[in-house]
């Protein structure tokens, strides 16, 4: 029973991070209809920036995260301006290839600057605490809390503010949004900014319990894709729900099936889902 509870909590932690990453991906997909393969690279860059600021400038962990998410948000906006904006009238294959090009570039770039070695990130929240009978590290608790707060803030922003409503409007109908006077360029940049922020936040939170290395984004981005397909491309509640589904099934699968193949579980899930329903589970009608 204890093992199960412990694993459920682990699933909650992993799921929170997955949800954050998938949210950024699904927001961008919602407004531009491009699967941003470079999102995983933003995740990786976010972790490295936090790490560098902590080690070289000696800033506090939380301050480093704050700097990092703003920096990655800017990189993300830059990417939209330089790469996706010029491509807005091209074929889907071109978008995907351009995103893959950026992914390869950012990974190489990280390898050049920070080296290929695995880095361990320190955290001031390493202490173990007793939480309703579970022994958990403070860091994991912070991951869950921060992620949930971030999701609530994002939800309030999208639903309650005018700027947030423009993002939703553009996701529903690009031409329509343009017609009623929404500046679609601004909204696209804003969406990419939020997406970068979420990726960097997820990466910085999870780095102290995992490791930091140039290809750390690979698996996460693949799983984020699985999540947004499960949750319906462009759907925000779907991304959150999907993140936790994958998080739980992975941590439970790793304990009760095999830890060697825990990474395969989410892909197998995706293959099964797409085999049965090629449009994804929660999608509404056409692609």
């Amino acid at each position: 029973m204890d093992v199960l509870l412990q694993q459920l909590f682990n699933g909650l932690t992993i799921g929170s991070v997955y949800s954050l990453v998938a949210l950024g991906l699904t927001l961008v997909y919602g407004i531009l209809h491009i699967p941003n393969f470079a999102h995983g690279a933003l995740y990786m860059v976010g972790a490295y920036i936090t790490y560098t600021i902590m080690t070289s400038l000696g800033l506090h962990y939380l301050l480093s995260i704050l700097t990092s998410i703003i920096a990655v948000g800017m990189i993300s906006v830059l990417m939209e301006r330089l790469v996706f904006h010029p491509l807005k009238d091209s074929t889907p294959i071109q978008h995907k290839v351009a995103a893959i090009g950026m992914l390869l570039f950012l990974e190489s770039f990280a390898q050049l600057i920070w080296g290929a070695d695995y880095q361990q990130m320190e955290t001031p929240f390493g202490q173990v605490i007793d939480f309703f009978g579970l022994t958990v590290t403070m860091q994991r608790l912070i991951i869950v809390i921060t992620a949930v707060v971030a999701m609530i803030l994002l939800y309030l922003f999208l639903k309650k503010t005018f700027t947030g409503a423009t993002i939703i409007a553009m996701a529903q109908n690009r031409e329509g949004a343009h017609l009623v006077g929404i500046n679609t360029n601004k909204v696209a940049m804003l969406t990419f900014f939020i997406s970068g922020v979420l990726a960097a936040l997820g990466a910085s939170l999870t780095s102290p319990i995992n490791l930091v290395f140039p290809s750390m984004g690979h698996l996460v981005i693949l799983k984020a894709f699985v999540i947004i397909i499960i949750g319906g491309m462009g759907s925000i509640p779907g991304a959150i729900l999907g993140g936790y589904i994958i998080g739980f099934s992975e941590s439970i699968g790793a304990t009760y099936i095999s830890s060697d193949y825990s990474d395969i579980i989410s892909f197998a899930l995706l293959v099964i889902i797409l085999t049965i329903k090629p449009q994804g589970i929660f999608s509404k009608g056409g692609v």
């Binding site: 889907p92 693949l222 894709f225 892909f267 995706l270 293959v271 797409l274 090629p278 449009q279 994804g280």
Partner: peptide, 28 residues
């Protein structure tokens, strides 16, 4: 047979995952 039931982005993501599964199976 299965992959081609999906289209465009779904196809790319699906094949990406299939490729990764093939790699993982060979590796493990």
């Amino acid at each position: 047979l299965i992959a081609l039931r999906t289209k465009e982005h779904f196809f790319a993501i699906y094949t990406l995952c299939v490729g990764y599964i093939i790699y993982l199976v060979i590796d493990k």
